[in-house]
Amino acid sequence: METILGLNLATWWFLVIGGIFSGYAILDGFDLGAGALHLFFNKEESRRKALNAIGPVWDGNEVWLVIGGGALFAGFPVVYATIFSAFYEPFMIFLVMLIFRAISIEFRSKEPMLWWRKTWDISYSVSSIILTLSLGLILGNIIQGLALDQNYFYKGTLGDFFNPYAILIAFTTLSLFMMHGAIYLVMKTENRLYAKLTVIVKNTTIFFVLMFALTSVVTLLYVPHMAKRYQEVPYMFAFPVLAILAVANITRQIAKRKYRYAFMSSALVTALLMVLVAVGLFPNIILSSIDPAYSITVHNGSSTDKSLKIILLFAVIGVPIVATYTTFVFWTFRGKVKLDDASY
């Protein structure tokens, strides 16, 4: 296999895809978290401000999910086919909820009736929660391993997805996104809504810290293969240490009401948690719970070297362009939310 800076092309592509999905988790994470918190705001003005805080960026943030799916298909077609076959029902639910979240945001303010707006408020919040739980459920099953046979066919049932560990990861993901979203909203609001969000930020942070600690203990006790790589390569312990320090810094910055730094730490925690999963699984991408020999790795699940080289070139050019556009949008719509006639 051809190498670049000591790493083969499949490993480089694994890192690129991991970076893209980390970007999606950071960006769409606060959107989903804001949606999950939406019903905590009782006043019409507060709900409109919360919607307009994410209004200019939410659809652009979802672009990272599309890029990630395309990158997975191009770089690891076997993984793409296996995941979408195994998780067919959860992904269908995920897509339906994506549609409902989008139309809830767009339709809510089209009519003045109270029942109309409340209906779409509920739809927006429920779809955001289910989307987040679905992502966590999929991640939890990937961490734990899927029942794959020698042909990479999934031999489990729909009920197998709802195992205790995957459900734990789902609620940990929800707690992370709710905290991330609350911090983002508090940066974008002022006056009474700001005061209410300072309380919500503290509560969601406590929720996440508890879930983070519980998930860490359960993973070490019941998913031992996730610790194997860290035992083999001791310097990899730097990642969990950084994650713990970043979590501690979130609470520190929130106590000082420096929410911009808290948001940066929250984004860092999200990225580091993705890194912890990637390091724990590597070189596997999908671990077979039937027989480790049936697992899909970065080597047996990747495209040819020629294909990887071509698409890696596209990624090197395309991803920075999307990142630049995303930065431009955030810079353009920086500052506190102000409602006007064009607002949601």
Results as ranks from 00 to 15, higher is better:
residue 2 E to R: 04
residue 12 W to N: 02
residue 13 W to Q: 02
residue 17 I to E: 03
residue 17 I to H: 05
residue 17 I to P: 00
residue 17 I to T: 04
residue 19 G to E: 10
residue 21 F to G: 05
residue 24 Y to P: 02
residue 24 Y to G: 10
residue 24 Y to S: 01
residue 33 G to I: 05
residue 34 A to R: 00
residue 37 L to S: 07
residue 40 F to T: 12
residue 40 F to P: 04
residue 42 N to E: 13
residue 43 K to N: 14
residue 43 K to E: 15
residue 44 E to V: 12
residue 45 E to A: 15
residue 46 S to L: 03
residue 48 R to N: 14
residue 48 R to G: 07
residue 49 K to I: 14
residue 50 A to E: 11
residue 57 V to H: 15
residue 58 W to T: 04
residue 59 D to W: 07
residue 64 W to D: 05
residue 64 W to V: 04
residue 65 L to A: 09
residue 67 I to L: 15
residue 74 A to K: 02
residue 79 V to F: 05
residue 82 T to A: 15
residue 82 T to R: 10
residue 88 Y to S: 11
residue 96 V to N: 04
residue 97 M to W: 01
residue 98 L to F: 10
residue 101 R to K: 05
residue 102 A to R: 07
residue 107 F to H: 08
residue 111 E to C: 09
residue 113 M to W: 08
residue 113 M to Y: 06
residue 115 W to R: 10
residue 116 W to D: 03
residue 118 K to M: 11
residue 124 Y to R: 04
residue 124 Y to L: 15
residue 129 I to N: 11
residue 131 L to N: 09
residue 132 T to S: 14
residue 136 G to D: 07
residue 139 L to K: 10
residue 140 G to D: 12
residue 141 N to D: 14
residue 149 D to E: 02
residue 151 N to A: 04
residue 152 Y to A: 14
residue 155 K to M: 15
residue 155 K to P: 04
residue 157 T to A: 02
residue 157 T to C: 05
residue 157 T to M: 07
residue 160 D to F: 09
residue 161 F to T: 11
residue 163 N to L: 07
residue 166 A to M: 05
residue 169 I to Y: 01
residue 177 F to A: 12
residue 185 L to W: 06
residue 189 T to C: 06
residue 191 N to W: 00
residue 193 L to R: 03
residue 193 L to H: 07
residue 195 A to L: 12
residue 196 K to D: 08
residue 197 L to I: 07
residue 198 T to E: 08
residue 200 I to R: 06
residue 208 F to M: 10
residue 212 F to V: 06
residue 218 V to N: 08
residue 218 V to W: 09
residue 219 T to V: 09
residue 219 T to R: 06
residue 221 L to P: 04
residue 232 E to N: 10
residue 233 V to C: 05
residue 234 P to H: 08
residue 235 Y to K: 11
residue 251 T to L: 12
residue 252 R to M: 07
residue 258 K to G: 00
residue 261 Y to D: 03
residue 263 F to R: 03
residue 266 S to C: 10
residue 267 A to T: 13
residue 268 L to V: 11
residue 270 T to V: 13
residue 273 L to M: 15
residue 276 L to S: 06
residue 281 L to K: 09
residue 282 F to H: 09
residue 283 P to N: 02
residue 284 N to H: 07
residue 285 I to C: 05
residue 287 L to N: 04
residue 289 S to W: 00
residue 289 S to K: 01
residue 292 P to V: 03
residue 292 P to M: 00
residue 296 I to S: 00
residue 303 S to K: 00
residue 304 T to L: 02
residue 305 D to A: 09
residue 308 L to Y: 03
residue 311 I to V: 13
residue 313 L to Y: 01
residue 313 L to S: 05
residue 314 F to M: 09
residue 320 P to N: 08
